[in-house]
Amino acid sequence: MSQERIKVLLAKKKIDVHGRGTKLIARELRDAGMEVVYFRFGVVEEIAEAALQEDVDVVAVSIMTSGQMQVARELIPALKERGMTDVLVIMGGIIPEVDFEPLRELGVHRCFPPGLPGGVVADYIRENVGTATLA
């Protein structure tokens, strides 16, 4: 089995107790054939560094206790700084819809509301992986 697989870094705040959605999406993406690195981060730099070492195709950040704008503002430059300019960046969780567009302007390719079937996210990833750019 040496075919290529989509690799996803699924990040959530280290100290956020709300892990259910993150765990569900991790399983759903796995069951959609993806390799999912589950990762609890303390500061955004850690996501970027993990994304780099793991050489993932997708960085997915699960947000449950707000701070999405702050994460996006720091994460996108941190990825670019490391030369990860072709990684797909998505967010999901408790994020108000009104933030989706501002987040896109910061470089987040797509935000997902909570509770969606994981297949929707997996389809989006499959369709967009490799075409994304953070430039």
Partner: peptide, 21 residues
């Protein structure tokens, strides 16, 4: 996973404390 070919890679998560930054 023998069924989907996907995988959950959770080891890194346990190592973050000793390695971050």
């Amino acid at each position: 996973s023998p069924f989907s070919g996907g995988a959950l890679l959770g080891d890194r998560d346990r190592m973050v404390e000793s390695s971050s930054g």
